[in-house]
Each structure stands twice: as structure tokens, then as C-alpha cells.
Amino acid sequence: MSATALPAARTRRTELPSGIIAGGGLIVLLGLWEAAVHLWHLPGYILPDPAAVWRALWSGIAVSPASPLGWYRPLWGTFRNAALGFFIGSAVGLAAGSAMAESRTVERLLMPYAFALQCLPKVAIAPLIVIWFGFGDGSKIAIAALLALFPVMINSFTGLRAVEPERIDLMRALSASRIETYRLVKLPNAAPYIFAGLDMAVVYALLGTIVAEFLGAQEGMGVVITQAESVTDVAGVFAALIILGALGMALHGLVRALERRVVHWADRGKH
């Protein structure tokens, strides 16, 4: 018991200062912000002071979840579409990456296009996708999926190819089938790579959803931002950005927590 409690206490002691530093940095930033607004008499439609942003933030929090004025409904809409896009994009990315890793022919077929598409700013395709999928949830999910696909595809391809030859020898010596080798060795072996891809994908999916919402939507955080912009409610835009940042960090944290559970064996006395 004490053996496990001791290292935990030690990590907490070393981690505490980093929290204090980040918190201190935030206080300094808020102070400078407040000072700048008052010093140069900046109007609220250029740069609102921190208190105004806080009021805008709080006014959306302190309402019933069903209220159209709160953050909850647009946030849910954006989250749902980003999550769906993330799952679809990741699944397609994993399937395509696996096919490329398993077959040289598929690799030669897909790799040039994968890189060409990767170099293309995919946000520029967004208007096209809105034309194809309409202004509803479909276009949001499609763009989120498109953005999520690439990091998962490339990372799973790399990870599946990075398997140690001894592990493949082991499976060959056991007369294991290709599917068994994939499922029992290659896929778990690639898990750290795949999670690195998922980590990127979850943030990209959120980005894709917001961009799609900018182009036209009934509901979502993108809509909240464009509406606030149209009435030069800059404090409202700031508040929405804070909410989106928090959502992004929460999703990132979720993927990392899942990774720690699944890939618990990584970086521990490798042999």
C-alpha cells in the first residue's frame, strides 16, 4: 500500500508547480488584457474586457439545458456531429490504413492519392461537400469524417508496418493465418500509433464540424459564433471560443484516458 502511495505522492509534488505556473500565467494574461482595454479605451466591439466575456459565458451556462439561449443545445449539436464524423472517419481510416499495410498493391493504389489529398487544404473542399450533403447534419459529419480520416489512416499504416520481425516469425512458426497475425499481433502492436492518430483526429473532427457550420447550419457552436459576429457581440464570440476550447480539450483528454487503459503496456521495459 505504502509502496504504491509513495511514487504517487512524489509525482504530485513535481506536477503541482506546473499547475501553479499555468494558473499564474492566466492571471497575468487576464491582468494585461484588462489593463490594455482600459489604457487604450478599447470599445467592446473590438476587444471586450474579461468581465464582459465572463458575463457572456455565464449567461449561457446559467440557463436551462433546453433553452435556445444557452450553450447546451448548440454544444450538443456540434459534439454529436463531430463525434459521429470522428467515428466514421477513424473507422474508414483504420480500414484503409490496414488494407494499405497488408497489400502492396493497395498501398501503391492509394498512397499517391492519400498524400495528394493530405496536401490539399481539406477545408477548401468544405463548400463542395455542403453542395453534396446539404446544410443539415450530413455535411457536418462528412467534413468531420474527412478531416479525421487522414491521421488515422497514415498512423495505422505506419504502425501496422512497424511490427518487429521476431513477432511475425513467432506467428509464422505457429502457422497462424493472416487474419490471426493481424488481430493478435499487428493491430495491438500498432495501437500506440493508432491512438496518436485518433488524438489528432478528434481535434480535426471538431474543426471540420465548426467549418461546416460556418458555411450554413441550423444549430451548433459555429452558428453561435457567426450570429454573435453579425451583431458584433465580440464578448459572445470569445465565450463561444472558450467553450469550444474546453470541448476540444475534454475530447483530447478522453482519447488519452482511453489510450492509457488500452496501451498500458507501452514504454514499460520493452523486450
Binding site: L170, L174, S175, A176, S177, E180, L184, P188, N189, K270
Partner: peptide, 29 residues
């Protein structure tokens, strides 16, 4: 007919010891 013992054990790190030992009984039909 043949069992192979590899250099440096070559165990799969995502499986428990028991799962590693069970592996040859799960694959190859």
C-alpha cells in the same frame, strides 16, 4: 512438431503471461 524459443523471450507485451502461453493453442486452426 516444433516449438521455438526465441531470443529475449519475444513475449507479446499486451497479453498476460497466461495469454502468451495460450497463444499457440488459439492460432493455426
Amino acid at each position: 512438431e516444433v516449438g521455438v524459443v526465441f531470443q529475449a523471450a519475444n513475449l507479446l507485451p499486451w497479453m498476460t503471461v497466461r495469454e502468451n502461453i495460450r497463444l499457440p493453442l488459439r492460432v493455426g486452426g
